[in-house]
Simulated assay, not measured.
Amino acid sequence: MAGKLHFSLVSPERELFSGEVDQVDAPGSEGDFGVLAGHAPFMTTLKSGRVKVYDNGRTLGFDVQGGFADVTPDGLTILAEQAVEVAL
């Protein structure tokens, strides 16, 4: 599927990431999931774990401690209880 996904990762302190990416993998409370452009809308809670962001051959990582993920036709927004960028 062609196209980019708009992704935003927000913690109570600040917005850690916002931009167009190829794919995002996240730790859902009912199982890990991946989102590409055009994904069906859904909302889920997150467990503690790593969010991986893939774009043009590079990968970014963020450790999150709970929160929510909301996939809409406009993209993916993660509202994390705590989040920090990590080196992969």
Score class of each variant (00 low, 15 high):
residue 12 P to L: 07
residue 3 G to Q: 09
residue 44 T to A: 14
residue 37 A to I: 00
residue 12 P to E: 05
residue 42 F to V: 04
residue 18 S to T: 04
residue 3 G to V: 09
residue 77 T to N: 12
residue 37 A to G: 00
residue 73 P to G: 04
residue 30 E to R: 00
residue 51 V to I: 15
residue 6 H to R: 14
residue 31 G to P: 04
residue 49 G to T: 03
residue 46 L to M: 10
residue 76 L to M: 05
residue 17 F to M: 10
residue 1 M to H: 04
residue 62 F to C: 01
residue 10 V to W: 06
residue 68 F to I: 13
residue 63 D to H: 11
residue 65 Q to P: 00
residue 27 P to M: 06
residue 32 D to A: 13
residue 74 D to L: 12
residue 16 L to F: 12
residue 52 K to M: 14
residue 34 G to T: 01
residue 50 R to I: 15
residue 79 L to G: 06
residue 59 T to L: 10
residue 46 L to G: 07
residue 41 P to N: 05
residue 38 G to A: 11
residue 45 T to S: 15
residue 85 E to R: 14
residue 55 D to T: 09
residue 44 T to N: 05
residue 77 T to E: 13
residue 9 L to K: 06
residue 83 A to Y: 11
residue 41 P to D: 07
residue 57 G to L: 07
residue 75 G to Q: 04
residue 35 V to C: 11
residue 34 G to D: 04
residue 79 L to F: 14
residue 56 N to G: 07
residue 79 L to V: 10
residue 49 G to W: 08
residue 63 D to L: 13
residue 41 P to S: 14
residue 58 R to N: 13
residue 24 V to R: 03
residue 75 G to W: 09
residue 40 A to F: 11
residue 86 V to T: 15
residue 8 S to Y: 01
residue 27 P to Q: 04
residue 21 V to G: 10
residue 31 G to Q: 09
residue 10 V to I: 15
residue 66 G to P: 08
residue 8 S to P: 00
residue 40 A to V: 14
residue 79 L to Q: 12
residue 35 V to R: 07
residue 3 G to M: 10
